[in-house]
Design a protein around this nucleic acid. Structure first.
Lengths: 210, 210
DNA sequence: CCAAACAAGGGGATTTTTCCCCTTTATTTT
DNA sequence: AAAATAAAGGGGAAAAATCCCCTTGTTTGG
C-alpha cells in the first residue's frame, strides 16, 4: 500500500518540486502541498484523509513550524511529522524535536537519504540522524532557553529595537527598574555583557523577526 | 531543440527535486546539479557543454552567488543566468541584477510562473517580475549602501559586537572621537537612532555574519 | 507548611552612548 | 584654482545603559 505524504513549505517551487520527487519514489504519494501551517490545520480540521507523514518547514508565514507542531501534537498526537528545513542551528532542531516531531531533515540531504528517512519514519516512527541526536543530547544552550519566562521573551523582543529601556518599560507597562531587572537577568542567563549582545543572541537564535 | 539547464544550489534536496520538475517540462533538460559556485566554475572551466540557462542560488558555501556571477560575467559574458533564491530583500536583488544576472526568481513562485520565466529568458534574454523591477528602480536603499566607505563598513561590523566604542577605536587604531564620527555618519545614512538600530540594519541587510 | 524561586520595584553610582558644534589635512571634482 | 568631500580628531554636556545591592509580595515544589 502506498504511503501518503503532505508537504508544508512556503517556498512553493520547492514544495512542488519535492512533490514530483516523492511521487517518483515507489509506494509514496503526495496528498497535498500547503504553503503554511494554517493551511495544514484547516485541512486536518476538516477531517480529510490523514497522511502517513507530514513534512513540515519551520520558517513560514501565517503559522510557523513550532506553532503548527504544537497544534498537531495537541490535536493529533499520533500524527508522524518530519521537520524539513534549512536551519541547522541547534536551537531550532531541539525546539522542533521537543515540540514532538519524529525527525529533523535538512534541505541539503541527498535524495536517497531522504527516501531512507521517509521509510524510517513510516516503519519505526522515528528518524534521527547524527546532527539531530547530537543536538538533543548537548542540551547546553537548551537549558538557558528553557529558563526564559514569557515576560523575559517579551522584553528581549522589545530590546531588539531602537526603543530605549524607558520606552520598553512603557510598552510593557512596567517600571524602568523592573526592566533593568529583566536586562540584568538576561545578561546572566544568555552570558552577554551589553544590549548589543542581547540583540545578537536573539538574532542568532531566531528569537526575533529581522 | 531542448533547452539545457544547470542548477546551482546548496540545498541538494531542492536541487534534485527541481531537476525532476524541469525535466518534466517539455523541451527542457537538466545537464548538471551543483552544490556551490565552485563546482559550477570547475565545470565551465573544463569546456564542457554550456547550458542555455544557469539557475543560481545566492547563499551558498564555498563560492556564493555574487562571486559566482562575477566570475561568469568576466569569463562567459553571454551566459544567461537566473538568480533563484529565497532572499526577497532589495539589497540582494539589486546586487544580483547589477552583477549581471538576467532575472531574479523567488523560491516561492508557482511552477507555471517558473516555466514562464525559463521560456522568457531563453527567448528574450531577460525575465524581470514586478518585484525585481521595483527593486532596481527604487534605488533608495541602494544609494545609501553605495555611500558606505570601507572604513565605515569595518566600523559597522565591529559595532555589531559587544565591544564598546572605545574598544572598537583600539581595534581600528583610531581615536574614540573618530569612531564617534563614523557612528554619527552611519546614523544619518542608515536612518537609525541608536547602536541597536545599527546592528538591526546590518543584520537585516546581511552585512554581518550572525 | 515552609523554603525556594520568581515577579516587580527601588537607590545610587559609574560607564557608555548620543548629540551638537568645531578644526585640520588630504583628495577629488568641477 | 576653487569648491566639495572624506578621513581624522576634539570639547563638553545630556541621556541611556550598566552595575551592585536591596525590599516586598506571590507562587510553587517538596
Amino acid at each position: 500500500m502506498s504511503k501518503s505524504v503532505i508537504i508544508v513549505d512556503d517556498h512553493n517551487l520547492f514544495g512542488q518540486s519535492l512533490k514530483g520527487l516523492i511521487g517518483s519514489f515507489p509506494n509514496f504519494e503526495v496528498l497535498e502541498v500547503f504553503k503554511n501551517g494554517g493551511e495544514l490545520v484547516d485541512y486536518l480540521s476538516a477531517n480529510k484523509k490523514l497522511p502517513d507523514i507530514i513534512l513540515l518547514d519551520v520558517r513560514m508565514p501565517v503559522m510557523n513550524g513550532f506553532e503548527t507542531m504544537d497544534w498537531v501534537r495537541k490535536n493529533l498526537p499520533d500524527q508522524k511529522v518530519l521537520a524539513l528545513t534549512m536551519e541547522h542551528d541547534e536551537e531550532t532542531i531541539i525546539k522542533m524535536i521537543k515540540a514532538g516531531c519524529r525527525g529533523y531533515l535538512l534541505k541539503d540531504i541527498e535524495p536517497n537519504e531522504f527516501l531512507l528517512a521517509l521509510n524510517c519514519v513510516t516503519e519505526s516512527g522515528f528518524y534521527l540522524n547524527e546532527e539531530s541526536s547530537i543536538a538533543s543530547c548537548s542540551s547546553n544552550k537548551d537549558k538557558v532557553e528553557e529558563k526564559l519566562s514569557q515576560r523575559e521573551l517579551e522584553f528581549l523582543n522589545l530590546a531588539c529595537s531602537e526603543l530605549t529601556y524607558k520606552q520598553v518599560a512603557d510598552e510593557m507597562n512596567l517600571s524602568p527598574k523592573t526592566i533593568d531587572g529583566y536586562r540584568e537577568s538576561l545578561f546572566n542567563k544568555l552570558r552577554v555583557r551589553s544590549r548589543v549582545g542581547l540583540v545578537l543572541y536573539a538574532v542568532k537564535n531566531n528569537m526575533v523577526e529581522v
